[in-house]
Write a protein that binds this DNA or RNA. Structure first.
Lengths: 334, 334
DNA sequence: GCGCCCTATGGTATCGATACCACCACTTGC
DNA sequence: GCAAGTGGTGGTATCGATACCATAGGGCGC
């Protein structure tokens, strides 16, 4: 299974030039004569040479790798973010080293340190809730850090996202304005899901005299699919039978809650409004037609890639907060 | 923004030992006395040292990185596969370098060569359709290659997946056995989606005299969400008005087709059966209750991680084909 | 015609870790 | 009591690329 890799020296010998010339021919072709360039390119093809980027990283102190951490890949919106990020970065010649934290700050701390071991040129974090350890590591590392999906007051360096609080507020406001009297906020109770926390805060902001009703489902291994939402609605109705709206913290929960409501013969949206968050692709399908908040995940990723490339280019990105907003999509369920 | 990284030499000086001892303390603690170990660990914490893995990779010729390519992350089943893979690998001390090919073999060729530049210890490919260039690169590179989601007759080295052909066959068989006379196979027409091709072959195998009806939707930028499935059903019904079953190549298409059928007032499953592929989490929700083929994406990832770790341990994995099967989930739509 | 600069190229040191070998201080066996 | 082992430690070369400096050769201005 083992084979020696072709090295730059091999290519140099084959092309009859010095190896530094090979390096230049590949990295900065403009600094090499057309003649030499061709010889080198021929030798590269003939030998099937692939440059060892790790060696290059060591000597140039630039790895051309960006570390990224997501809470989970299994929510399609995050997957879209990663796609946008990957596309943007690879266009700029950067590669993506990926990890997931599963909403656990301790896991994040571990992963950050693992990623730093690869000496990435930048770090992208899909979260803004970090342990003290993480913050210390990051501030000591001296590399650009970009936070996504939230807009903290004082980001570590820069952030790309939207206001979860405002979004939660708008949704609650919308329901109250259309006559709902007893809206419930349904969420999972993960220890550190700051996005859910902020949406909940927004919900509370919007109540204006209505009684706050927050129902938290205990965290589970799976990330909270529709089954969980169905269960959640059952609990909510038992706890507050007069509920007339359920604001779910995610579309997955909302789909479950909606189906459970229909199963029980509850009139949606007549007797009960159900709303989601994220606008996953099935949310708009006719059988569901869910009212929700649309987030453009891919755009967040693309914007993050733009910022990253700028930072790698030496630009100072500290303090930048890019708000990409959200959109309340009013459909049939509320 | 720049700061010098702490090196192993710094730690060695602080701990009053040689730097090779530091290396051993971190990599193989058992070979160092308890006393020295403690001194080193203290120095590591005090200085906030993070080992430079790229330098380590260069000298040990083992990068502890695994390159992975997926067709897309936006199908939840692939996201699950990546989660399974990542969990398995990180438990074994390996990191994941991720790229996506968007179902384009040329993009795959490019990404493989980019990944090889990082000198990964293994490669995981979510596809079995490779260009000649890719095959040459891979065979020359001399590293373990694991293909997922398909079971080619002769994998490059090893494969983990299931028979897409058998799954397509079983679904068609199931519908015909329950009395359907004119089943249609609905798919998107991507140039190189071999999984869809195999499912289609399976469908054809099962027809036994019934007329083959395959409707291909032209490829589009988005990966084919429910909207596309709705459009697809409309086209199918126009082309073959007597259609009594639609076998969709993915759940996303099926959800769209199902909703479109209901919108038109078609009796499902009475007049029309609709089936999907993948069993995404909303498929089972009451409002959809889709008949589909369940694939355990996470298990595929975990099994791939196991194989990868074995291969990195020196085991010869050539010729292994691990069949994880699938499950026909019969629900309300057929 | 001389000196200057600019382009193209090569040599050598270097990045930060690990492999390999050497060595020392003990213990163990006979 | 001495050779042979063993566990712990350090020195030095090395991995494969790039940075930095040096150099050769030509064109051009004065």
């Amino acid at each position: 299974m083992d084979r020696k890799w072709v090295t730059m020296g091999d290519v140099a010998r084959a092309a009859g030039v010095g190896k530094i010339t090979v390096s230049r021919a590949l990295r900065t072709p403009s600094k090499v004569s057309a003649d030499t360039l061709e010889k080198v390119q021929k030798a590269v093809v003939a030998l099937g040479y692939v440059r060892d980027e790790t060696a290059g990283a060591l000597s140039s102190q630039r790895s051309r790798v960006v570390g990224a951490l997501v809470s989970t890949l299994e929510q399609p919106v995050f997957a879209s973010t990663i796609r946008g990020l990957e596309e943007g970065l690879s266009a700029g010649g950067l590669q993506l080293l990926l990890g997931s934290t599963r909403y656990q700050p301790e896991k994040e701390a571990l992963m950050v340190s693992t990623l730093l071991g690869r000496r990435p040129d930048a770090l992208v974090l899909t979260s803004s809730d970090h342990t003290e350890d993480t913050r210390r590591l990051l501030s000591g590392a001296g590399l650009p850090v970009i936070e996504l999906w939230e807009l903290p007051e004082t980001p570590i360096h820069a952030a790309v996202g939207f206001s979860n609080r405002a979004a939660g507020h708008d949704m609650a406001r919308h329901l109250i304005a259309s006559g709902r009297r007893a809206p419930v906020f349904l969420r999972t109770d993960r220890a550190s899901d700051t996005r859910a926390d902020m949406r909940e805060k927004g919900y509370l902001d919007a109540l204006e005299g209505h009684a706050p009703r927050i129902h938290s489902l205990p965290p589970r291994e799976d990330q909270g699919g529709p089954d969980y939402g169905a269960e959640g609605l059952a609990q909510v109705l038992q706890r507050w039978p007069d509920t007339d709206a359920v604001i779910c913290v995610s579309d997955a929960l909302a789909v479950g809650a909606l189906c459970e409501a229909r199963r029980r013969g509850i009139d949606v949206p007549g007797a009960l409004a159900v709303t989601g968050f994220g606008d996953i692709d099935v949310a708009g399908a006719a059988a569901l037609d869910l009212t929700t908040i649309r987030i453009d995940g891919a755009a967040i990723g693309r914007e993050a890639a733009r910022l990253t490339l700028a930072a790698c280019d030496g630009e100072d990105i500290r303090g930048r907060r890019i708000d990409l907003g959200y959109q309340l999509i009013r459909r049939a369920t509320g």
